[in-house]
Design a protein around this nucleic acid. Structure first.
Length: 423
RNA sequence: GGAGAGAUGGCAGAGUGGUCGAUUGCGGCGGUCUUGAAAACCGUUGACUGUUAAAGGUCCGGGGGUUCGAAUCCCUCUCUCUCCGCCA
């Protein structure tokens, strides 16, 4: 959520930046400024009357104590009108604030200066490409066929017990999951991220804090009886650990990592591109989250990106890094890098990670602050990224590493899987 | 699920209608002392809003009410704890 004071002071810049994100309602900006003026005016009137009423109440108290009842009664007689006006103005202020908030929440974050203009994924900027795309034999098959051939994943069984998009992993397929999770966590810890294990359901306040709510209810599973949401990503609970917290400057940056399953309704998805592991309702992911000083957050974003790339390199997967264009970026992000691996059997890039700097967009909602050099509270920056999401990694590993003998497990994973081949 | 108790500043914990944004202790910060540290002593220490800076305003779990005046009284919601029951 943008800060109203910032919008007020930087109207032109806000409009210019929102245009990069192809924001459809630029008129909201002026509406918000106008509403904020009204709000401030009302607040001012309310404050003044409250001040009068407060001092009158004090006088009455004093007079009563001195036994000057008549004088006290005289002042009391005047308070009725104030009281009424305080009530009226208070209600008006409430309404104004609510209306204002409802509008502010509609504004996406302002994109960083380096974000390319553009509307669709085709407009994303390829930052770099790394690794060698394997030349598979002509009879190479996609991962869903490999999964069946080697009895690794049973999609139909998942449909029986839950529904489409909830696969059952079996045999070496299940072991590979566990190996990847442990490997990713170990690597994150080596890079300085402290592991946390967090709840898989969150309340509404948490959903709001990381900007899933309001508006993206439709993407999350909701447990109505208890008013809880299943997490679409560990970003939500891990970032919300620091909701309503004022940190010391020397505690920054705070780095956390965690593994969770993620639950996504993926309403509206369909077609060949969602086959197999390409798009699921439940999947496992290791997430890295950083709370950073604003001066450092972009350096840290690069480091987080480098960490993710390091994982892909060690796994021997060809990948590329995209700088998302304004139109393809998430609502709350200021700058996002997507990492995609090359799936050789499907002949397409698969997104396996997304690393973003949210600047103060989340922290303003979270009330996540730190005490700066002047001793004042200041909003921190929040960043997060997948390191990594499992299913498409599994898909790419299976497809790219298929040989006549079987599927070769990358060396770095062998200590975790305890086997070298799926055959 | 049943019964009871509770929610106050970073933490602990006072405060039951007025001078309370809130006693005190711990913690934090600054200082004295010390080669340095500890101890001791002195001072300081909530957030938001607002202003050039002040003043002022708001906040004692959330919301509503009573009153000239509410941390304090009333209603309501949420959460936490204890005991009982059930249970991985």
């Amino acid at each position: 959520m943008l800060q109203v004071s910032y919008i007020r002071d930087n109207r032109e810049k806000v409009l210019e930046r929102l245009a990069v994100k192809n924001f459809k309602q630029p008129e909201l900006v002026d509406e918000i400024i106008q509403m904020d003026n009204d709000r401030r005016q009302t607040q001012n009137r309310l404050d003044n009357i409250s001040a009068e009423a407060n001092s009158a109440a004090k006088q009455i108290g004093e007079l009563m104590r001195k036994g000057k009842k008549d004088e006290a009664e005289a002042i009391k007689a005047k308070t009725g009108a104030w009281k009424e006006e305080i009530k009226t103005l208070g209600d008006a202020l409430n309404t104004l604030e609510n209306n204002l908030n409802q509008k502010v929440v509609l504004l996406p974050n302002l994109p960083h200066a380096s974000v390319p203009k553009g509307l669709t994924p085709e407009d994303n900027e390829v930052v770099l490409e790394n690794g060698v795309k394997p030349n598979l034999p002509a009879d190479a098959i996609p991962h869903w066929e490999l999964a069946a051939k080697y009895n690794l994943i049973d999609f139909e069984l998942g449909v029986k017990i839950t529904g489409a998009g909830f696969p059952v992993y079996k045999n070496k397929g299940a072991k590979l999951q566990r190996a990847l999770i442990n490997y990713f966590i170990d690597e994150a810890e080596k890079a300085g991220y402290k592991e946390v294990s967090v709840p898989l359901m969150v309340n509404e306040a948490s959903g709001f804090g990381t900007s899933q709510l309001p508006d993206k209810e439709g993407q999350m599973y909701f447990v109505g009886l208890d008013n809880l949401y299943l997490i679409p990503t560990a970003e939500v609970p891990i970032t919300n650990l620091y909701r309503d917290v004022i940190l010391k400057a020397d505690e920054l940056p705070i780095r956390n990592c965690g593994h969770t399953p993620c639950f996504r309704r993926e309403a509206g998805s369909y077609g060949a591109h969602v086959r197999g592991l390409n798009r699921l309702h439940q999947f496992d992911k290791v997430e890295i989250v950083t709370i950073a000083h604003p001066d450092e957050s972009y350096d840290i974003l690069e480091k987080m990106s480098a960490h993710v790339q390091g994982l892909l390199q060690k796994l021997g997967l060809p990948y590329r890094v995209l700088r998302l264009c304004g139109g393809d970026m998430g609502f709350g992000s200021a700058l996002t890098y997507d990492m995609e691996t090359w799936s050789a059997a499907q002949q397409r890039w698969l997104e396996v990670s997304s690393v973003s700097n949210f600047e103060t967009f989340q922290s303003n909602r979270l009330k996540l602050r730190f005490r700066n050099a002047e001793g004042k509270t200041q909003l921190a920056h929040t960043l997060n990224g997948s390191a990594l999401a499992l299913p498409r990694i599994v898909a790419t590993l299976l497809e790219n590493n298929q040989t006549e003998r079987g599927i070769k497990i990358p060396e770095v994973l062998v200590p975790y899987t305890k086997f070298e081949w799926i055959d």
